[in-house]
Amino acid sequence: MLSDYQGLVDRLVRDDAGKLTAADRDEAIGLALIRYGQARPRQGVADVTPTGDTLPLPAGWVVGSSTLAGLEYPIGQVPPASIPGELYLGPDGLVVMLAGRPAGPVRVRYTLQHALSATEDTLPPADREAVAKYASALLCEQLASFYASDTDSTISADRSFGQTRSQAFAARAREYRKQFQAALGIEEKTAAPAGAVVQLKSTDSRGGSRMYHGRMG
C-alpha cells in the first residue's frame, strides 16, 4: 500500500536535514507511478455491447491515459478471434469505430492507470522497489538543486559542504534512475541524429544515370 512506498522512499533518500515535505514525497511517488505505467501499463478487460458499428468505451477507461490494446469478437473462440476497430472522436465523445456490426458483445482489452492508495495497490510486489527508486531519484534531484543554489555561505567551509551535498544527491539520483531502468528493462534513449545521408536516384534525358557512366572504349 501507499505507506509501504512512503517508508521505502524515506529510507532511500535519507533527508536528515528535513528539506523535503511529506507532500513532496507523495508527489514524487505519484510521478513515479505514472512513469512506471508508461513502461508497464495495467491491463483492463471489459465486455461491451456495441451500438451498430460503434462501441462505447469501457467504464474503466481513462481519457488521455488509456490505450486500445485489442478487440475480441466473437468472444470465447480458440484461438481468440479479433475484429478491426479504432478510436474515433464523434459528436457524443470518444468511441471505438468498428469495421463491421457485431451481433453481440465485444471484449475490449485496454490499458489504464495503476492505482496506489491507503487501500489499493495494483503494482506487482516485485516492482515496488523500482517505483520507490524512481520517486527517490526525483527527490534527490530536488535536494541536489537545493544545495547547489544555497548561497547563504558566509563561511567557505559551509559553501564547500553544500556543494559536496549537492554532488552526492545528484549522483544518488542518477544511480536510482539507472536501477529503475535496469529493473524494468528500459534502455536509456540517446539523441537521434539531426540528419541523414541518402542517395538520390537521378537520370539524364536518355534515362541513364547522371552519377555513373560506363568506361569509354
Results as ranks from 00 to 15, higher is better:
residue 142 Q to R: 15
residue 142 Q to A: 14
residue 142 Q to F: 14
residue 143 L to H: 13
residue 143 L to Y: 10
residue 143 L to P: 13
residue 144 A to Q: 00
residue 144 A to F: 06
residue 144 A to W: 02
residue 145 S to V: 15
residue 145 S to C: 13
residue 145 S to A: 15
residue 146 F to H: 15
residue 146 F to C: 12
residue 146 F to G: 11
residue 146 F to T: 13
residue 147 Y to V: 03
residue 147 Y to S: 07
residue 147 Y to C: 02
residue 147 Y to I: 02
residue 148 A to E: 08
residue 148 A to C: 11
residue 149 S to E: 15
residue 149 S to M: 15
residue 150 D to C: 11
residue 151 T to F: 14
residue 151 T to C: 11
residue 152 D to C: 02
residue 152 D to Q: 14
residue 152 D to N: 04
residue 152 D to P: 08
residue 153 S to G: 02
residue 153 S to W: 08
residue 154 T to V: 04
residue 154 T to E: 07
residue 154 T to G: 04
residue 156 S to M: 10
residue 156 S to H: 06
residue 156 S to P: 03
residue 158 D to Q: 01
residue 158 D to N: 03
residue 159 R to K: 04
residue 159 R to H: 06
residue 160 S to I: 02
residue 160 S to Q: 13
residue 160 S to P: 06
residue 161 F to V: 01
residue 161 F to L: 10
residue 161 F to M: 02
residue 162 G to H: 11
residue 162 G to T: 02
residue 162 G to C: 01
residue 163 Q to Y: 07
residue 163 Q to T: 10
residue 165 R to L: 13
residue 165 R to Y: 09
residue 166 S to A: 13
residue 166 S to Q: 03
residue 167 Q to I: 07
residue 167 Q to L: 05
residue 167 Q to A: 11
residue 168 A to L: 10
residue 168 A to K: 13
residue 168 A to N: 13
residue 169 F to V: 08
residue 169 F to A: 12
residue 169 F to N: 12
residue 169 F to Q: 11
residue 169 F to P: 01
residue 169 F to L: 00
residue 170 A to H: 13
residue 170 A to D: 14
residue 170 A to R: 15
residue 172 R to D: 10
residue 172 R to A: 12
residue 173 A to R: 09
residue 173 A to I: 09
residue 173 A to T: 09
residue 174 R to S: 06
residue 174 R to Y: 05
residue 174 R to N: 01
residue 174 R to A: 06
residue 175 E to C: 01
residue 175 E to L: 12
residue 178 K to Y: 01
residue 180 F to E: 03
residue 180 F to H: 12
residue 181 Q to C: 03
residue 181 Q to H: 07
residue 182 A to I: 12
residue 182 A to S: 00
residue 183 A to Y: 04
residue 183 A to M: 01
residue 184 L to D: 09
residue 188 E to D: 08
residue 188 E to H: 01
residue 189 K to H: 09
residue 189 K to M: 09
residue 189 K to T: 11
residue 190 T to K: 03
residue 190 T to M: 03
residue 190 T to N: 06
residue 190 T to E: 05
residue 191 A to H: 05
residue 193 P to F: 07
residue 193 P to R: 07
residue 193 P to D: 06
residue 194 A to D: 00
residue 194 A to Y: 00
residue 194 A to P: 07
residue 197 V to F: 09
residue 197 V to M: 00
residue 198 V to A: 08
residue 198 V to T: 14
residue 199 Q to Y: 00
